[in-house]
Computed example of a mutant assay.
Amino acid sequence: MANVKVNVEYCGACGHQKQFLEMANLIKQIVPQAEISGIVGRQGSYEVSIDDKLVHSKLQTMAFPDFAEVSDIVKDVSNGMPIRNVDKHQPINCILM
């Protein structure tokens, strides 16, 4: 299994650290050797990169990635498969007034 690096830029003001920690825990359960790092970044951000390739951007999609799919991608990459983008997103729970 290859070593995989997952980097997440998330908005600290929005409270996205909670989602980062949830996703990091899920990845670690599936790929214990993955190196996961998170940094507080731009407002509204939740940008996920695997081995320096952006695979999901909340700034572009306005949604969080499906954490299970991110974990599956990390597992596939650790097994030598190519990096692919996240296709599934979590439902957006927002109310417009």
Rank of each mutant, 00 (worst) to 15 (best):
A13I: 09
I92F: 11
I36T: 06
I73H: 05
V8M: 11
D72Q: 14
C94G: 05
S49H: 14
N79E: 13
E35C: 06
S45N: 10
G44S: 11
G15R: 00
P32V: 03
N79Y: 10
P65N: 06
N25T: 08
V70T: 02
S45G: 07
S78A: 15
I30Q: 05
Y46L: 02
M81E: 09
G41T: 01
T61R: 15
Y46A: 02
I92D: 03
M62I: 07
L96N: 05
K75G: 06
H16F: 03
E9W: 02
P65S: 07
F67S: 02
V77D: 01
V6L: 11
S49T: 11
M23L: 12
L54V: 13
G41W: 06
D87P: 01
D66F: 06
F64M: 09
L96F: 13
A34K: 04
I36D: 05
S78R: 02
G80Q: 10
A63R: 14
V55N: 02
F20R: 00
Y10T: 06
K5T: 08
Q19R: 00
N79P: 02
K18P: 01
V77G: 01
I92S: 09
Q33R: 11
Q90R: 08
N3Q: 15
Y10E: 05
V31K: 06
I39E: 15
N93V: 08
Q17F: 07
A68W: 03
V8A: 12
Q33N: 14
H56D: 06
P32N: 12
V8C: 06
S57W: 09
H56W: 07
P32F: 14
L54Y: 09
G15Q: 08
V4L: 10
C11I: 09
N3Y: 11
A68M: 08
K53F: 12
M81D: 06
D51H: 09
P65E: 07
V8I: 15
G80A: 14
A63T: 06
S71W: 00
L59K: 06
I36H: 02
P32R: 03
D72P: 00
A2K: 15
M1E: 10
F64W: 05
V8F: 04
P91N: 04
S71L: 08
P65G: 04
D76G: 12
V77F: 10
Q19D: 01
Q43K: 13
F67Q: 00
E47V: 01
Q19A: 09
D52N: 15
S37C: 08
Q29P: 01
V40W: 03
P82Q: 10
P32L: 09
C11F: 07
I95Y: 08
H89G: 05
C14N: 10
A68Y: 09
H89K: 08
I30C: 01
P32K: 10
Q43A: 14
A63I: 03
L26Q: 08
Q29E: 15
S57T: 06
A2V: 12
L21C: 04
G38F: 03
I83M: 09
I30D: 07
N79L: 15
I30L: 11
E69L: 09
D66E: 07
I95V: 14
L96C: 12
V4Q: 04
S49C: 14
P32C: 12
H89M: 04
V8K: 04
S78F: 12
N25L: 07
K28R: 10
M23V: 04
L26I: 03
P91A: 14
D52Q: 12
C14Y: 05
Q33S: 14
P82V: 08
A63G: 03
